[in-house]
Structure formats: structure tokens, C-alpha cells
């Protein structure tokens, strides 16, 4: 079966950077697969203590309300904020991007509030409106990217410190603020490694 059950890849060599993947719910196993292919060390993060010893964090796609619920149970939301405050890179895809945003619409909800963007949930519509779109990330990819949007959010506002790295159909879909990276699509659902490779570079790998 899929690697969820065998996924505890305890990165034993402390000298080598380990990327944590938040594994409360969602497609965390696909991010793990992508990191595996890129030769990066990774570890699933399910508890606050799991944040110790990792050098960066990926927040995967899934349901943001589910993740928030379990995060709050263990005060893990505060721990992730502190993790970010120490300058550790965080990459959020879809639900992960929603969690990173400072402001969430449709409806307003709790969030980690780390990135100066306003994001609207389910903004393209329901599952029948999910689509594969062509997008551009001129500063990191010289080819158009296949971007998979699933009940995706739309970034409605970007703050001054936020740099837009990718567009699809005229909308910002990949944004960066210092050590934080957020995508409204799912690079982990395709074979294109560009976005993950870029995140690993941000992590100094």
C-alpha cells in the first residue's frame, strides 16, 4: 500500500537537513514521495515535539479546517509560529497556503497568519470546477507548468513584502515572503519537480 504506514523516516544523521511534512491529514505522502525523488531527507510531523530537529516544514493539501482542529488540540499552531519566527522555511500547498495566510475569506477562519496575503477558500467553486491549468513561474521555470487546482483558493491580496512568483489565468498562484512559500495548486500531484526543487534551494539544499 502507500507509504503512509512506513513513512517514519527518522533522519538519523543530525548534520543533514531534514524537511518536516505536517501529517495531520491530507496528501502528505505525495510530498514525501516528491522529496524522496529529489533525494532530500524528510520526516512526518504529527506532534509539536516532531518540530525539533527539522530545518523546514511543508504543510500539504487537505482540509484546512481539519488541520486547524488537530493543530489547536496540541497547541501546535503556536509552535509552528515560533518555528517560522526562527526563520525556518515553510512551504504550504492549497490548504497549507490557507493556513499560512494572514487573512482568510469564505468564511473567515483561524489561521497561522504568517504571510501577508488574503486568501479566499474554494474560490473557483466546487469539485466540478477543479481543473488543470497552465501557469508560468518566469523567475524559477523556463517552461509553462502544469498546475492542478482542486477546490482551490484564490489569493485576493498580496502585501508589500510578498513577491508573486507564479501566475495562472492572470491570478497569483505561487507567492513568497522571505522564507515562506505558498502555492494555491498542487505541485505534488504532478511529476514536475520545479517547485519543490525551488523550495529545497530556499532551505539551502
Amino acid at each position: 500500500m502507500l507509504p503512509i504506514s512506513v513513512a517514519m523516516n527518522n533522519g538519523h544523521q543530525p548534520t543533514e537537513a531534514v524537511i518536516g511534512i505536517l501529517a495531520i491529514q491530507g496528501d502528505f505522502a505525495l510530498h514525501a514521495k516528491m522529496l524522496e525523488r529529489l533525494g532530500a531527507r524528510w520526516r512526518l510531523v504529527k506532534h509539536t515535539a516532531d518540530l525539533n530537529g527539522i530545518s523546514a516544514l511543508i504543510i500539504p493539501g487537505g482540509e484546512s479546517t481539519t488541520m486547524l482542529n488537530v493543530l489547536a488540540d496540541e497547541h501546535m499552531d503556536a509552535a509552528i509560529r515560533e518555528f517560522a519566527a526562527r526563520g525556518k522555511p515553510i512551504f504550504g500547498t492549497c490548504a497549507g497556503a490557507i493556513l499560512l495566510a494572514k487573512e482568510v475569506l469564505n468564511p473567515a477562519q483561524q489561521r497561522l497568519g504568517l504571510m501577508d496575503i488574503t486568501i479566499e477558500r474554494n474560490a473557483y467553486g466546487r469539485q466540478v470546477d477543479s481543473a488543470v491549468r497552465q501557469g508560468e513561474c518566469p523567475s524559477i521555470a523556463d517552461h509553462p507548468l502544469e498546475m492542478v487546482f482542486i477546490r482551490a483558493p484564490i489569493i485576493r491580496r498580496v502585501g508589500k513584502r510578498v513577491r508573486v512568483l507564479g501566475w495562472a489565468e492572470g491570478l497569483p498562484v505561487l507567492v513568497e515572503q522571505d522564507h515562506l512559500l505558498a502555492a494555491t495548486f498542487h505541485p505534488e500531484l504532478t511529476d514536475d519537480q520545479t517547485i519543490h526543487r525551488y523550495f529545497l534551494r530556499k532551505c539551502g539544499l
Binding site: I24, Q25, G26, G61, E63, A95, V132, V148, R151
Partner: peptide, 14 residues
């Protein structure tokens, strides 16, 4: 099928 399976992927662990 990628979009259909994609949503199922998002529900995993839930």
C-alpha cells in the same frame, strides 16, 4: 482522473 483522484488524495488521513 487526475482531478478526481486528486480530491481523494486530499481526504487521506481524514
Amino acid at each position: 482522473m487526475k482531478l478526481k483522484v486528486g480530491l481523494a488524495e486530499m481526504l487521506k488521513g481524514g
